[in-house]
Design a protein around this nucleic acid. Structure first.
Lengths: 341, 341
DNA sequence: ATTTTATTCTAAAACGTTTACGTATTTTTG
DNA sequence: CAAAAATACGTAAACGTTTTAGAATAAAAT
């Protein structure tokens, strides 16, 4: 590996001059800069990020913290899409992305914060994780720039999907299609779930719909078996709903299976809708009615704000950034206005 | 940040002794080691990976190179699963994972090799990429430890899915179900496609099936529109197939849509099968018959072999490692033996 | 001609580690 | 008990950068 020292020797200048030439500092002549750069190319010089990081305390490396309850990790569709967008955005500014080692199984494992410090991340993005975890709190309360996805800490920038509006839009849409008996199988407790459930109730109330307790059920996110069971329970009610909302698209398919197993058709006999807008949902029949979360935008805004926070900490406003989702109509909600009651 | 210097001062020993104590070297007494470690905990000391990397030329950081033709990036199901397994495996050995910046859009972008050197990756795993790309070749021909996924370079360890056996199993299964008119919409040219297509032909020949040219079609991987079109073409044939194989599960759904749009039932009227075994395929109806690739094993073996290559370069055998897939029967291939011909 | 100012460069320290080598002390050995 | 060997620690250089402070030269101002 050719270092600045080699380069300096080849150019007959000092190492300092080489450094300044490559970093385009003002106190080195244009002529010298040109010469150093040419020689650098010639010798195949490339900087050493470790040395640079050591000296400057800036790694140009961003950490991603992601642990899923279901351990689905990178295969979590929502997260994968957000992360992909995040990555593309930071790469434009020459940052790299390192996945924070989350293993607690090996000897000498560190906390998230320790690991972030160890690696010298300039910033960390936290997503889809148990935000009550003491280690996460420790990281959030540290002085490392952090943005969180879909969870708000009052001292940190958060990029969150507008679950309140999303759920309102969804319920309003379903209502507009004539449904009055709407059940909601929601995910297990989390801030996202809370926002959606509360918005569900509020919207129903505003629309004058009464929601019997037995229409509210819980199922883990992305768990088709549970939604299958809960759906069966809903169908067994003496007064079953005409439309069922699911925690997410993936889990929704569990419900669809249950419904079909009962010999019911979607949407003719019963309507369903979900949340997320995963890609495959638009490619299989029936096309699932859902709220498509704008993962592209979420990732992009998270990236842009994290970088702003890193590079201009003082002028960056700490606040939640809300990204709206969009209703994807699909074909799983029937318009029952057209039918005589 | 508390450094070794601080720690040394607090312990009344030299920095060297601290370093050696923490690294469990032999030439420091048990008593001192104990004392240094205790003090380290007390002061909240943690090492600095940049300094360590600079000195030792080992970063304990592994790079992932992944560029998809379709730019699906991290959302590519097969890759996401492999990577997730890979990550879990290397984390057990205290490595971190950095996604190689693939952007070519910003100023001063480096080649993959340059970036790998810049970051000091101990090794790189390459997957799902255009392996003809000169930059990839440059990296593969470098002295950085590399393992490739699903592509064989003769100077590198490769972990590949057994596409030959997979396709043979699939065709044999379909044949066993009585099918003789089997069409194959295969992916666009790549070593994976080549292996599958050639295995498809070989198996058919061995089974005594003739495959008319019009039964072979091309569609991009994961492209439902294309498979939709190709499927329509197959259905329009004067002598249409009784079973259609698809490039991958995702693309398979495009075919399913086409078939259903024609008012045909799966598998009663026509059978379909695909390749990959993505998770959702087991959760939606009809359950797609497919070859489930063992992404868990592929990721794990790639990780284990890369680490072996990094840590014991001499004793590591450079060869392709083949991971077998497994037939997932699903319910999209009808047994037409039971029906009178 | 002298001082001031601007320009371009260099020397050297520093970042936080590791490690080869040296030295002092203790233990073993014949 | 002297010499050799083993043990435990310290010194200092090195890794590849950046950066501060200052030196040398040239240009401008007096």
């Amino acid at each position: 590996m050719v270092s600045m020292k080699d380069l300096a020797a080849a150019c007959n200048v000092s190492v300092a001059t080489v450094s300044k030439a490559l970093n385009d500092q003002h106190d080195v002549s244009a002529k010298t800069k040109e010469m150093v750069r040419k020689k650098a190319k010639e010798l195949g010089y490339f900087p050493n990020s470790a040395a640079k990081a050591l000296k400057t305390n800036r790694s140009h490396n961003i950490g991603v913290l992601f642990v899923d309850e279901a351990q689905s990790g990178l295969t979590h569709d929502f997260f994968a899409n957000v992360l992909d967008s995040f990555k593309r955005t930071i790469e434009l500014q020459d940052y790299d992305l390192t996945l924070v080692n989350c293993s607690k199984e090996h000897h000498g494992s560190m906390t998230y914060l320790e690991r972030a410090r160890y690696r010298g991340f300039d910033g960390v993005v936290i997503a889809c994780i148990d935000f009550k975890d003491p280690e996460v709190i420790e990281l959030v309360d540290s002085n490392i720039p952090v943005v969180t996805i879909d969870y708000i800490f009052n001292n940190r920038i958060a990029v969150i999907s507008d679950n309140v509006k999303g759920m309102r839009d969804l319920v309003t849409y379903v209502y507009g299609m004539g449904h009055r008996k709407i059940a909601y199988i929601h995910g297990n407790d989390s801030s996202v779930t809370q926002a959606r459930v509360s918005s569900f109730y509020t919207t129903c109330t505003q629309l004058g719909i009464e929601v019997p307790d037995e229409y509210l059920k819980v199922a883990d996110y992305r768990n088709t078996e549970e939604t299958y069971q809960r759906t069966m329970e809903l169908l067994d009610l003496s007064d079953p709903p005409t439309c069922i909302l699911y925690p997410d698209d993936f889990a929704g398919f569990g419900g669809i299976n249950a419904i079909r197993e009962r010999g019911l058709r979607i949407p003719e006999d019963i309507s369903v809708a979900a949340y997320d807008g995963i890609r495959i949902g638009r490619h299989i029949e029936p096309k699932l009615t859902t709220i498509r979360q704008d993962t592209e935008q979420i990732g992009k805004l998270a990236a842009e704000n994290l970088i702003k926070l890193i590079e201009h900490p003082r002028s960056t406003i700490i606040r939640p950034i809300v990204v709206e989702g969009e209703l994807y109509e699909g074909s799983t909600v029937k318009d029952i206005n057209k039918v005589a009651e």
